[in-house]
Amino acid sequence: MPEVDFDVDELDADEQISRDFYRQVQVREDMLFPLAEHHTAGGEHSYYVLFDRTATWGHPGDPQYVAVHLHRHPEKRTFDFEKATLPLPSMAQSWLIHRGCPADAIGLNPELGPPSADEATRALEQRLAGDGDHYALGYSYTRDDPDDMVTVVVLRALDERATAPFRVVVEEVDTGAWTHTLREGAFATVAEALTWCQDRLTGTAGPLPPVRPATSATRPALPSTASNPRPPGRSR
Rank of each mutant, 00 (worst) to 15 (best):
Q198V: 10
P34Y: 10
T195E: 15
S235G: 13
A36F: 10
D7T: 01
A55Q: 10
T225H: 10
R19M: 12
P207N: 04
Y139L: 12
P102L: 05
Q26Y: 10
L11K: 08
A157H: 06
G100A: 06
D118G: 07
A41Y: 05
H59I: 14
V211M: 07
V169E: 12
G61P: 09
S227P: 00
V68M: 08
P209N: 12
V153A: 03
D9V: 06
G61M: 11
V4K: 01
D104E: 15
A103S: 15
L128K: 08
R122D: 13
R212A: 15
A191E: 08
Y47R: 11
L222T: 14
A117D: 10
M1E: 08
L201E: 03
A226M: 11
E160N: 01
P213A: 05
T121N: 09
L201F: 15
Y22F: 11
D104S: 13
S224T: 13
L108K: 06
E29H: 05
V25M: 06
D133A: 06
Q26P: 00
T218N: 14
S224K: 14
P63S: 12
C197Y: 02
F166Y: 15
A214M: 10
Y48K: 00
S116Y: 02
S116W: 04
Q16L: 13
L35H: 08
T218W: 03
E10L: 06
T215P: 06
I97Q: 11
L70D: 04
R167T: 04
T202F: 05
L70K: 08
T179L: 10
W57Q: 13
P207H: 03
R53P: 00
T142S: 15
E119L: 15
P89D: 06
S18F: 00
A123I: 05
F6E: 05
E29G: 02
V173C: 10
Y135T: 10
H71Q: 12
P63A: 14
G203H: 04
V190K: 02
Q26G: 00
T78N: 08
P213H: 07
A55K: 12
P232D: 12
H73R: 14
Y135N: 09
S18T: 10
Q198Y: 05
R183A: 15
A177Q: 12
A205T: 11
E3S: 11
D159P: 01
I106S: 05
P207K: 01
P102V: 06
R23Y: 08
P114H: 02
D133V: 13
T163H: 02
R161E: 11
Q198E: 15
V152N: 10
H45D: 13
F187D: 00
D9M: 01
R167Y: 09
Q198A: 12
L208N: 02
A84V: 07
A205V: 09
V49N: 14
L124N: 01
H39V: 15
H180P: 02
G43K: 05
L88W: 00
W95F: 12
E172V: 07
K83E: 09
R143P: 00
V153H: 01
D131S: 08
R161K: 14
V4C: 05
P34C: 12
Y141F: 15
V168S: 04
P223C: 03
R234H: 12
A162N: 09
R23I: 03
T179Q: 13
L96I: 11
D118T: 01
P89E: 14
E29P: 00
Q64S: 11
K83S: 13
G43N: 07
T85P: 02
R156T: 08
V153S: 12
G130N: 14
A193C: 05
E3Q: 14
A120P: 03
G43R: 00
